[in-house]
């Protein structure tokens, strides 16, 4: 009599994600135990309960969610996994919160490479470790070929805001200094120049990174910071417009003060795109009373994500709800919200 070997349903029998990996059966369990848990495990996840039961330190609770659908999934300077962790960490951090817990939901297209999935999960674990947060809940769904574009990730995050902090995009006061943490457009241009169909190459890398270390240090030094935002989609232009509208003030910025990397500037020139409209994933826009600006700058410049921090403008009473740029030539122009998709120009 021959004894059939126990089937361990090893996921590596497959090189790609199968529908069964998301069906809740053996393959789902194998995926969980062999691919996700080795990288993400922590006391909350290890229990394999349907929910994480969390204790929170005192303070107001900040809660946020964001879905990541970036294409390509792997780009110069990062991948969708670390983007999903850092993006949600940053959304908490800019509200003055200390990010603590994250959840992660995966929607994976049938046929996606398991090796690539593992790389993504690994970098999520690494990003979470660097940011000092734990991924305490998760979910995986597999959809048929063509029903999503390779992999989508949703992360939600919980953080706690210390007593006394009152950051809000409604808080800008005339006279405030507007500080930008570094060069604009790195992430968006890294993505755009790595997409198929563009026949030039660049060395532009994404600025994808977690800002919570820097924001914590800034708030410790100057708890009265009026507002912070991370200028992601729509770029610095969209963020400044949102701040101006929410606070009912004008913002005046100086063209010569805006830092743009040479490669990013070149790619933007070529594609006819304004760097101020291009997404960032590791940058910060700060509004602070002018008396506190130099202190905030000093703290930012000592952080790896704020080395190039600079004052780019001021909050003004004029043109409420609008952002106006003083050009290098001494003229002025409106900096508007970008309209929909960034379209390369025709000639």
């Amino acid at each position: 009599m021959t004894i059939a070997p126990l089937c361990p349903a090893p996921i590596m029998q497959h090189e790609t994600v199968q529908m069964a990996h998301g069906a809740g059966g053996r393959l789902s369990q194998a995926l969980m135990q062999r691919l996700f848990m080795p990288h993400l495990h922590n006391p909350f996840l290890d229990l394999l309960d349907d929910q994480a039961k969390l204790d929170l330190p005192p303070g107001r609770v900040a809660f946020t969610t964001d879905s990541y659908v970036v294409s390509p999934v792997f780009f110069p300077g990062g991948n969708i996994g670390e983007l999903a962790v850092n993006g949600t960490v940053n959304d908490l951090a800019v509200g003055g919160a200390r990010p603590i817990y994250l959840s992660a939901g995966f929607v994976i297209e049938e046929g996606f490479s398991l090796a690539e999935l593992e790389t993504i999960v690994k970098s999520m674990a690494e990003a979470a470790r660097k940011a000092g947060v734990m991924i305490v809940a998760g979910d995986t769904k597999v959809v048929g070929k063509g029903q999503c574009d390779r992999i989508f990730i949703n992360t939600s995050g919980i953080g706690v805001i210390s007593e006394g902090l009152k950051l809000s995009c409604c808080n800008l006061q005339p006279g405030d200094s507007i500080i930008l943490s570094g060069t604009v457009g790195d992430h968006g241009m890294a993505i755009m120049t790595s997409r198929e169909g563009l026949s030039f190459q660049s060395r532009i890398t994404s600025d994808c990174g977690a800002l919570n270390g820097m924001t914590a240090a800034m708030l410790e030094a100057v708890p009265t910071i009026h507002a912070m935002r991370d200028p992601t989609r729509g770029g610095v232009a969209a963020t400044l417009n949102e701040l101006a509208v929410s606070s009912g003030v004008g913002i005046a910025i100086n063209e010569t003060a805006i830092p743009v990397k040479e490669d990013v500037r070149g790619a933007c020139e070529l594609l006819g795109i304004d760097p101020l409209h291009v997404a960032n994933e590791g940058k910060l826009v700060v509004a602070v009373a002018p008396a506190d600006a130099s202190k905030v700058l000093e703290v930012m410049r000592s952080s790896e994500h704020g080395r190039d921090a600079v004052i780019i403008g001021t909050v003004v009473v004029d043109h409420p709800g609008m952002v106006v740029m003083n050009t290098a030539f001494g003229s002025r122009r409106i900096i508007d919200l970008p309209l929909g998709e960034q379209l390369p120009r025709i000639c």
């Binding site: 050009t327 030539f329 122009r333």
Partner: peptide
């Protein structure tokens, strides 16, 4: 011209 405000100058 409009972007750089040349008409204003």
């Amino acid at each position: 011209i409009i972007r750089n405000g040349i008409d204003q100058l």
